[in-house]
Structures are given as structure tokens and as C-alpha cells.
Amino acid sequence: MIRSKRPWRHTFQVALEGIWYTLRTQRNMQVHLGVMFAVTGLGLALGLERTEWFWIGLCITLVIMAELFNTAIETVVDLVMLNPHPLAKIAKDTAAGAVLVAAVFAVIVGVILLGIPVWKLLVN
């Protein structure tokens, strides 16, 4: 096995480059980031408890991770498949489905943790 002589910080640098690439090029990642800031602001305004922040953080992490994996899979498929292929479509659609599953979970958690307190504020 060949060992890399790259410095440890290089690991973080390439990871951040991947995140930055996805943020710059993927509209959905930009939407996810905007929602993340909105939810964080709302959570701060509502004074969420520690366990509620855990669930919010988990949801944000899952959605961002799913979007990063989706971008990676779509990029590799586009690289190796010069012509459309049914299996390439399945790979890309399945990766997009993973993002949808994570996002739906995040919305459900968000409605439970944020929707109810916001509704109570609006009603009173």
C-alpha cells in the first residue's frame, strides 16, 4: 500500500474544496444553506432546548451530506457516461431520492420543533 506524504491539513483542504464546489454550483445546496440559516435564526429566537438543537443539527447534517453525495455521484456518472444510459439515470435518480428523503425528514422535524411554537405565538 502506498502512503501519502501529504500534510494532514490537506485532508481538510480538499474536503472544504468539495463543499465549496457544491455550494457554488448546485442550486439545491444553496437553498439548503439558506433554509439552514433561517431555521437556525428561528431556533435562536424561540430559545430551543439542547435536545431540540440536536435534532435540528442532525437534520442539517443529513441534508448537507446527502446533497454532497448526490453531487459526487452525479459528477462521476456524467464523467463516465458520455451518452445517456438507463443505469446512469437510475444512479442519479437514486442519489437525488436520498436528498429528498433527508429533506422530508428535516421538514417533519422542523414542523414538530419549530412549527408548533410559531403557531402558538401567532395564535396568542
Rank of each mutant, 00 (worst) to 15 (best):
L42I: 12
M29Y: 14
W55H: 13
V107C: 11
G57Q: 03
L33V: 13
I90H: 10
L58I: 12
W8P: 03
P86S: 09
L23K: 04
I108A: 15
L42N: 07
V14T: 01
V111F: 15
A106N: 08
T51C: 03
P117W: 04
F105Y: 13
E49M: 06
S4M: 08
C59H: 01
V76R: 14
A96F: 02
L100D: 04
L46V: 06
E49W: 15
C59S: 11
N83M: 09
L16T: 04
L23R: 12
V118S: 11
R24G: 12
V109D: 07
M36I: 02
A88M: 10
G57L: 09
A103S: 11
K92C: 13
E67Y: 00
I108M: 12
P86Q: 02
P84G: 03
R9L: 14
K89C: 06
P86Y: 06
N70P: 11
F69H: 00
R24T: 03
R3V: 12
P84D: 15
V111N: 01
Q13R: 01
G97E: 08
W119P: 12
P117C: 04
V118T: 07
W53S: 06
T11N: 07
N70R: 14
H10N: 06
R9H: 13
L68S: 15
T25I: 04
R24F: 03
A102M: 15
R50Q: 13
R27Y: 10
M36R: 12
G97W: 01
T40A: 07
L114V: 14
T71E: 13
G97Q: 09
G110F: 04
I56E: 10
I64L: 05
I64G: 08
K92L: 09
T11S: 05
L113Q: 14
D78L: 02
A95E: 00
G34E: 05
L121K: 12
G115V: 08
L100E: 01
Q30N: 05
I112P: 09
L46F: 04
M65N: 13
L48G: 07
I112W: 04
G57E: 09
I116F: 14
A15W: 09
R24L: 15
V31K: 08
E49Q: 14
L82F: 00
V39W: 11
S4N: 02
N28L: 06
T22C: 05
I64S: 04
I64K: 03
R6D: 00
I116R: 15
V80P: 06
S4P: 09
N28E: 13
V63Y: 01
L68I: 02
C59M: 06
T11V: 10
L42E: 09
V123T: 00
A45C: 07
V118N: 02
A91W: 12
L46W: 03
R24H: 10
H32F: 10
Q13V: 02
G110L: 07
A91R: 13
A45M: 15
A106H: 07
A96V: 14
L33C: 12
M29C: 01
G43W: 09
E67F: 10
F105N: 05
M65C: 01
A91D: 08
M81V: 07
L16N: 15
G110V: 00
L48T: 02
A96L: 10
P84W: 01
A15T: 02
G97C: 12
